[in-house]
Amino acid sequence: MHMKRLSHWVFTVLSLITLSSCEEEMSNIVTDETAKDVTGNWKVLKLTRNGEDLSKRLDLNDFQISFKTDGTYSLSEQLPFVVNDAGNYTLSDPQFPFSLILQPEGETTEVPVKFQFPVVKGKRQLSLTFSLGCSSNTYQFDFERQN
């Protein structure tokens, strides 16, 4: 009986030591998240409206958005998009952005767009979510980078 109690105590103390050492290790890890680089030409891979996939029904082949290193963006042609004109862009945070902020040329209003940057099948995808007309209608554009 005495041995059993002793073993429980040893187990508890060891667990606490393990946990506390983990905590120290975690706090020592240096977060080295790279800044998100969205520069390049992006082509629409998928478009959904309120979750419904429209990409096979709409011809989106010619629609591209380009982000340049000088902080400007341009659109290849007139298509339903959150902005209609070229302008400047910034990310809400260089490492952990949750939105892409677009500012069309000649306009003072900034247009924030929900931003995701997942890796799908080894390739980065740019996913932008916003409303075009009524706020009740949500569109998600998934882009892939063109070489």
Binding site: R49, P80, L132, G133, C134, N137
Partner: peptide, 10 residues
């Protein structure tokens, strides 16, 4: 569809 939309919606 959608039942409610504006001219900039699809």
């Amino acid at each position: 569809q959608p039942v409610k939309s504006l001219d900039n919606d699809i």
